[in-house]
Design a protein around this nucleic acid. Structure first.
Lengths: 339, 339
DNA sequence: CGTTACCATCGAAGCGATTCGATCAACGTC
DNA sequence: GACGTTGATCGAATCGCTTCGATGGTAACG
């Protein structure tokens, strides 16, 4: 491989001149710049990443901690990752993958100057990694919002807003009795801040709008969805509107509805909160509030770049929810559904 | 951050001694080694990745090219990635993510010594990246098998073997008329080598066993699966056994079967070729031949490591298929199914 | 006891960039 | 016309590590 010395020789200039042409940190005359650039192209020169990192103490790498535990929503993870990688490349950075259970991963990557910044996905309310992140010298961005955000930068969908929006959509079509089919009890209890925020949004808006709203947990499986629908109809008769925040259960829920002879949206209106792609695989189209994975990944990288260029902000950014109509919400039937 | 010099001073030895303790490339006496190791621990020293890469011309990074195009089977992608990352860490390597459409990604990563090796996923029969890969100075491993493998190293499931195994399983239960519900016509035509190999395996074994086998393509969607089942029953009446190699269509296919009053396995036996997790989300349990994503990722990394340590092999490794019974295969009903 | 070998360790030369003065020529300016 | 500016370029130090050759001390050997 050609080195910067080869380029300098070929262009008849010094090594530092080549460096300045590359970085633009000092003015170089037009003719010289051209000669250097031609030499670079001729030799197919690329700066050695390690050498550059050593000299500049910048690796141009962002570390991304991805959850690989089973049961996670893979669809949305991939969207995040795609958004992060694409945006990082636009800023001339690469992305290094860390796994959740690589406990020392954060320290390792930071202490060895392997990465310039860290993006951590799947943050829990009281995440075990928070102390490590707070102590970190590198800028870090969390995807998800923990309970205590002091000193941290976070991005996520505004789940409370999403809950409110879903309720508003259903309420304005005249629904009076709603149920949120949400995360499993387990996740609600322990970890998932987004589930809590979602529930808050739904209940809050229901109270404000004067409609009834209850919550039914669902296991994130096909049969979990079916069971959840049964539970809704058994425990909350008269329900006409559903907010489903559980992609994995959605299919089973809809299938069970069909089995029980319930038409969507005639007998039952449904709003899903889910990645957009997910809904494509369903038997019936479902109106949804999209979890914009790619967009959030993109924002995370942009926050990283801002931090790297010296802006000292530690802020939480919540992406506004948007409702996409696919026809699964309509006015409730005059004669409400009974179990 | 502490440097190797700090460690050397703290331990009262020279820099090179610390380096040799770390690498083990020369013998260091027990006492000295201990002192150095204590100093390392005390200072929390980690070698600077860039400096190490510069001096040793080894980055300890593997680049992984991941497809992010829509419509891809995300589930299995994540399994691969998980397997790759985990195994790479076991060998003290990190993983850098490249995207498919980052065309110059391969060259960039190679020319800048950012990575030591490359793993490329989702290889097509006549993949556009093959020339670049053949010309590469870095070791590269393909996940998937192109038509011409000369000079390349590949790993994949033995799809032909999987096809044969599926047919044997069905045949030994007495099925006489089988259909392979496979990839969409589009993928079959253009790209997906695995689809071609699968079909070969099925047809070959059917011929050998003396059973009838046909192929019906399916779009990789819920409704594509439903349509495929309709097509099977319309075009190939008397079919009692199905091999489904199309995870995304499997749910729709099973749902349509239920709608038409066909019981699995009483009226219809089904073998799926799919990642294991996928099958968990289905309304009925389905016997399957697993696509062992994680395992393949692991093997890919092990091949990388072998290449990096000097073994000059360029080989293709096909993972043997295994059948897992979940009860969706049984003897056909005496009175065969009619459309 | 003089050689030979080997073991443990050190010193110094890179690896390929970045970056901070320093230099030198051309240019106004008074 | 001497002098401070400014613009373009160079040289050398530096980043933190690996690795090769050299060195001194010990043990083995005849």
């Amino acid at each position: 491989m050609a080195t910067i010395g080869d380029v300098a020789r070929a262009a008849g200039v010094s090594v530092s001149t080549v460096s300045y042409v590359l970085s633009g940190k000092r003015t170089i005359s037009g003719p010289t710049r051209d000669r250097v650039q031609r030499a670079i192209a001729d030799l197919g020169y690329r700066p050695h990443a390690g050498a550059r990192a050593l000299a500049s103490s910048r690796s141009n790498v962002i570390a991304l901690m991805v959850p690989f535990r089973p049961g996670i929503n893979v669809q949305i993870i991939m969207q995040f990752v795609g958004g992060v990688v694409t945006t990082a490349r636009e800023h001339d950075h690469d992305v290094l993958v860390l796994t959740q259970d690589d406990a020392q991963g954060i320290d390792r990557v930071a202490a060895s100057s392997t990465a310039d910044a860290l993006i951590v996905m799947d943050i829990e309310s009281d995440d075990a990694r928070l102390p490590a992140l707070r102590a970190l010298a590198l800028p870090s961005i969390l995807i998800g919002v923990p309970d205590d955000t002091t000193g941290l930068s976070c991005v996520d969908l505004d789940f409370a807003g999403a809950g409110r929006l879903a309720v508003r959509e259903l309420a304005r079509h005249g629904h009076q009795r709603l149920v949120l089919v949400g995360a499993s009890q387990d996740r609600l209890d322990h970890r998932a801040n987004y589930a809590v925020r979602m529930r808050q949004g739904v209940l809050e808006q229901a109270a404000a709008t004067g409609v009834a709203a209850d919550v039914v947990p669902a296991e994130p499986t096909f049969s979990g969805g079916a069971a959840a629908l049964d539970a809704v109809l058994a425990e909350h008769p008269g329900t006409t509107g559903l907010v489903v925040h559980n992609e994995a259960a959605l299919g089973g829920l809809l299938a069970r509805a069909a089995e029980r002879g319930l038409q969507v949206p005639d007998d039952l209106s449904v709003v899903a909160v889910s990645p957009a792609e997910m809904a494509a695989g369903l038997p019936v189209p479902v109106s949804l509030i999209e979890v914009p994975g790619e967009r959030i990944g993109r924002i995370a990288v942009e926050m990283v770049m801002a931090r790297l260029s010296g802006e000292e902000l530690a802020e939480t950014r919540l992406v506004s929810p948007a409702f996409t109509d696919h026809g699964s919400v309509a006015a409730p039937a005059p004669d409400p559904v009974r179990p």
